[in-house]
Simulated assay, not measured.
Amino acid sequence: MMRAIVLAAMLVTSAAVADEGGTSFWLPGNFSSLAAVPTDPGWALPVINYYSSANAGADRTFIRGDRVSVGVRAQGDFLFLSPTYTFATPLAGAQAAISVASAIGYVNASADTSLRSPAGATVAGNQSDSRVGFSDLYPTATLKWNDGVHNFMTYAAAEVPVGTYDKNRLANIGLNHWAIDGGVGYTYFDEKSGNEFSSVLGLTYNFENPATHYRSGNDLHLDLAASHFFSPTFHAGLVGYFYQQLTGDSGSGAILGEFKSRVAGIGPQAGWFFNVGKSKWYANIRGYYEFATQNRPYGWNLWLTLAIPLSQPPAQ
């Protein structure tokens, strides 16, 4: 089980959450159970269906292109694919893997009022927008080490701004700026007791959006998961995250000031390993309820994940 396919636990994605327009590169909850556990070498295809619903009251304002939006509400539904290759030959004593994730998705967004900037003309009433499009690209590289029940990981990720974006629209899927992210992770997994705990800590550096001259601040994020294996193929437990913007937003487009954001989330999870032919697949469902928010929409999100091995498992 220690080397089963669990790549869906480390898919890097993006959706409506924080910073410029209430949206950040890092999506809290990216990492979950077994995040640092090595996997079988070869090709695999993690697939994630991610749904989110978030809102912010009339006392919260957000920069969206050339508008200051008040009372923002947003729903998103995304299907992410992340073809991943895990190398059989160790690198620095670790198992290395590379992947590139992207998604097609639907976003629906609305705002009670929008104020054009810098002219300041008021557009009264509810403004709404929806669209279907593609996300940015998210290349990721990981190194994982195993020492008995202890598993360690380091990762590096980036955002390549090629997704659907228009600075004059409320609903966007791409962010239109580059970002880099990196961090470390740990998983404790004792097959005898069936107990598992995972934690991944990372930092994001954001570059400026050239269309709006807005640079989101840098942030720290922590993903947590704990579960118990009730059988060799089924586990359940809790997941959580904490996201904190460390530096303020900047650039000529950041007319609301530093605008630091924060959020925490917690919820249940369950995962199953099952055989398809000679391959072992992995499915997971988890959800988060958000709280302790600051300068961002808040709500809930649901993840449905499936890790599909594409290479033949190694001979036993």
Results as ranks from 00 to 15, higher is better:
residue 278 K to G: 03
residue 257 G to V: 05
residue 256 L to R: 07
residue 246 L to I: 14
residue 244 Q to T: 11
residue 273 F to P: 01
residue 282 Y to R: 13
residue 286 R to K: 15
residue 259 F to K: 05
residue 250 S to I: 01
residue 282 Y to S: 12
residue 247 T to H: 05
residue 264 A to Q: 02
residue 287 G to K: 14
residue 256 L to H: 07
residue 269 Q to K: 14
residue 276 V to I: 10
residue 256 L to A: 04
residue 288 Y to H: 15
residue 263 V to H: 00
residue 252 S to Y: 09
residue 279 S to G: 06
residue 271 G to E: 05
residue 245 Q to E: 12
residue 254 A to G: 01
residue 268 P to H: 11
residue 256 L to W: 08
residue 271 G to C: 04
residue 269 Q to Y: 03
residue 249 D to V: 13
residue 272 W to D: 04
residue 245 Q to W: 12
residue 243 Y to H: 11
residue 276 V to P: 08
residue 280 K to G: 05
residue 263 V to N: 02
residue 241 Y to C: 05
residue 260 K to D: 02
residue 273 F to Y: 06
residue 242 F to C: 05
residue 238 L to I: 15
residue 262 R to A: 14
residue 249 D to E: 02
residue 288 Y to V: 04
residue 237 G to C: 07
residue 275 N to T: 14
residue 255 I to T: 14
residue 261 S to Y: 02
residue 262 R to K: 15
residue 264 A to L: 04
residue 258 E to K: 12
residue 278 K to Q: 13
residue 280 K to Q: 14
residue 257 G to R: 03
residue 277 G to I: 09
residue 269 Q to L: 13
residue 260 K to P: 05
residue 250 S to D: 13
residue 252 S to L: 10
residue 245 Q to I: 10
residue 240 G to R: 03
residue 263 V to Q: 05
residue 242 F to H: 13
residue 240 G to C: 03
residue 247 T to D: 12
residue 285 I to Y: 15
residue 242 F to W: 12
residue 287 G to A: 15
residue 244 Q to N: 15
residue 270 A to F: 05
residue 252 S to D: 10
residue 240 G to L: 02
residue 264 A to I: 04
residue 246 L to R: 10
residue 286 R to S: 07
residue 263 V to C: 00
residue 248 G to E: 00
residue 285 I to Q: 13
residue 281 W to L: 10
residue 275 N to V: 08
residue 245 Q to T: 08
residue 288 Y to I: 08
residue 281 W to K: 05
residue 267 G to L: 09
residue 238 L to P: 01
residue 241 Y to S: 03
residue 283 A to W: 11
residue 279 S to Y: 00
residue 257 G to L: 07
residue 282 Y to V: 03
residue 265 G to P: 01
residue 243 Y to D: 08
residue 277 G to K: 12
residue 277 G to H: 07
residue 263 V to I: 14
residue 265 G to S: 09
residue 256 L to M: 12
residue 284 N to H: 09
residue 272 W to H: 07
residue 249 D to S: 14
residue 243 Y to I: 06
residue 237 G to Q: 09
residue 269 Q to H: 08
residue 253 G to H: 07
residue 251 G to E: 10
residue 249 D to C: 09
residue 265 G to Q: 05
residue 288 Y to Q: 06
residue 288 Y to M: 11
residue 238 L to S: 02
residue 281 W to D: 06
residue 239 V to T: 14
residue 253 G to K: 11
residue 279 S to V: 07
residue 276 V to Y: 15
residue 264 A to R: 07
residue 241 Y to N: 05
residue 263 V to F: 01
residue 247 T to Q: 07
residue 259 F to C: 01
residue 261 S to K: 08
residue 260 K to V: 10
residue 276 V to T: 13
residue 265 G to C: 08
residue 276 V to R: 07
residue 282 Y to Q: 12
residue 286 R to M: 12
residue 247 T to N: 10
residue 287 G to H: 11
residue 255 I to S: 04
residue 241 Y to I: 08
residue 270 A to N: 03
residue 258 E to R: 12
residue 249 D to R: 14
residue 246 L to T: 13
residue 277 G to R: 11
residue 282 Y to D: 04
residue 261 S to E: 02
residue 255 I to C: 00
residue 260 K to F: 00
residue 286 R to F: 08
residue 256 L to T: 06
residue 256 L to Q: 08
residue 259 F to M: 08
residue 259 F to A: 07
residue 272 W to R: 10
residue 273 F to W: 02
residue 244 Q to E: 13
residue 275 N to C: 01
residue 274 F to Y: 14
residue 266 I to T: 12
residue 248 G to W: 06
residue 258 E to F: 03
residue 248 G to Y: 08
residue 273 F to A: 01
